[in-house]
Design a protein around this nucleic acid. Sequence first.
DNA 1: CAGGATCCAATGCGATACTG
DNA 2: CAGTATCGCATTGGATCCTG
Lengths: 119, 119
Amino acid sequence: MRGDAFDPDCPTRLILDRIGDKWSVLVVLSLAGGPRRFTELRRRIGGVTPKVLTQTLRTMERDGLLTRHVFAEVPPRVEYALTPLGLSLGRPIQAITDWAEEHVEAVVAARARHDGLPG
Amino acid sequence: MRGDAFDPDCPTRLILDRIGDKWSVLVVLSLAGGPRRFTELRRRIGGVTPKVLTQTLRTMERDGLLTRHVFAEVPPRVEYALTPLGLSLGRPIQAITDWAEEHVEAVVAARARHDGLPG
DNA sequence: CAGGATCCAATGCGATACTG
DNA sequence: CAGTATCGCATTGGATCCTG
């Protein structure tokens, strides 16, 4: 049985909320090539604070999208890796960001045109 | 020149923000089959209030994703339709919602498993 | 290195009521 | 029918400082 995004009570909405958050998408893309450490992610994803990155990673771990592996070393080392589920999400995510990167100019232009016109 | 979603100053981020909002995705899906009137959209998209739906539609119009056409009739009639740009966004959006509807159970299960375990 | 703790600002969103 | 106006809260996310 599939979900139904149009039903306000369907948990599919929860997924869309997650995808809609500011950083999950970039985390998925960053991990698509293999496991990464916390600071690697932080550097790769411009503008994210450690607090928010941690929150994002914890939520995604809870949702079964990635795993968190702590190595018993000094200095500490923690690696994040996509699960098969998270990896499968990578494809539609990539489609969205591809669209965004390709059409960003058209949107910005439309916005300028709209804002420039009176009324 | 394409955008770069990893650059915090790239407007691509603005697009991701739009896609991430609670209702735009459902509006795109609702209009994929052709133009719809305001109340049709409102009924189709469960749980949205008129104020928020209007906001969403206005923003999407500004971004060049849809057009708003007012008919000079009584009672009033307003139709919303996707532009070619909005239509092109429909495909990656559909990919995301397909993923969500297909994997919602896996995510909910992962969440339950995670929350059920101590620590 | 990988975070936790705390405080705070923005704002998205909802409820309700009203209108040309 | 297709909105607008007002109010207010809950959530999200950012700045900053601290630590095992």
